[in-house]
């Protein structure tokens, strides 16, 4: 019998601001170091006194010593989390969910399409790929946000743009003074790159409306259902398929997901 609700205590070892309402927290387990996970899996983070909420792991599994979570302020728990800093403690349970199939992606071309705060789960996968670059084909990253201010990981975006082994494009819905890059919704970036639907796996993460348009575009451009992979968003509480908040039909986003390809998504009945 497991103590399925008992969190591990973790220390915050670094915090940085991504946007005015988004911070990235770097966590280190206080009492045990053995923590293996896959990109796309998530944690239940306890802010003691406030309860728990799910956040995807934004850091690479090839660097398991620390875990990162990128968190937007949207309510009591995230408000309280944003007040915490270096040395403060939180609880974590997990990792939960199926995660991205990294092994199955080896040798393939990879297309990552992120929108706004949807980049963190892809970032985990992207760094996994970049640390083991030789094992993967062409890597393309397309990223969009509402404004330049809303872009997360701004320094890393610059680094990705400079790399010769990654094709990277970024766009914003609305420019701000000083922005000289692309303007428009994420699908405009498809015009900037040569897609190879037959050899490519596309990973799409972002707000529902962005996912809808990106996915439509990918199908028009010849992607098959199985090659378009996304993470589903649901309110999740327990992380282990028991509390029923995240159920879609008889599937649970926290256990059977959150990563699904579009063939699987079409089979979800509700």
């Amino acid at each position: 019998m497991n103590d399925v609700f008992l969190p591990h205590v973790a220390r915050i070892v670094e915090v940085w601001d991504d946007t005015p309402d988004t911070k990235t927290f770097t966590l280190s387990l206080r009492d045990s170091k053995d923590f293996r996970f896959l990109p796309g899996q998530f944690l239940e983070v306890s802010v003691f006194g406030y309860g728990e909420a799910p956040f995807c792991i934004a850091s690479s599994p090839t660097r398991p010593d620390t875990l990162q979570a990128t968190v937007r302020r949207t309510g009591q728990l995230t408000d309280a989390l944003h007040e915490l800093g270096n040395g403060d403690e939180v609880g974590i349970r997990g990792p939960f969910g199926n995660g991205f199939d990294v092994e199955g992606a080896r040798g393939k071309d990879l297309l990552f399409v992120g929108g706004g705060i949807g980049l963190p789960p892809l970032r985990s996968f992207i760094w996994n790929v970049l640390y083991e670059r030789d094992h993967f084909g062409k890597v393309t990253i397309l990223y969009g946000a509402r404004t330049p201010t809303d872009l997360v990981y701004k320094d890393e975006l610059k680094a990705w743009a400079k790399r010769s082994d990654v094709e990277f494009h970024v766009t914003v819905d609305r420019a701000e003074p000083g922005w000289t890059g692309n303007v428009g919704m994420v699908p405009v970036l498809f015009e900037k790159t040569a897609l190879r639907p037959d050899s490519t796996l596309a990973y799409v993460c972002g707000p529902p409306i962005m996912i809808k348009f990106v996915v439509q575009d990918l199908f028009v451009r010849g992607f098959k259902d199985e090659a378009v992979i996304s993470t589903l968003e649901r309110m999740m509480q327990c992380g282990i398929g028991k509390c029923n908040h995240c159920a879609i039909g008889h599937r649970y986003v926290c256990r059977d997901g959150p990563v699904f390809n579009y063939k699987q998504i079409r089979e979800l009945v509700e």
């Binding site: 003691f48 006194g49 509390c243 029923n244």
Partner: peptide, 24 residues
């Protein structure tokens, strides 16, 4: 029915985490 949510409640300067019934 067994759907639930989780909440922390303060007690004596510490907290107790509770599983509480919820409803779909």
């Amino acid at each position: 029915c067994y759907c639930f949510s989780v909440r922390d409640r303060a007690r004596d300067g510490n907290w107790i985490r509770y599983r509480i019934w919820d409803s779909c």
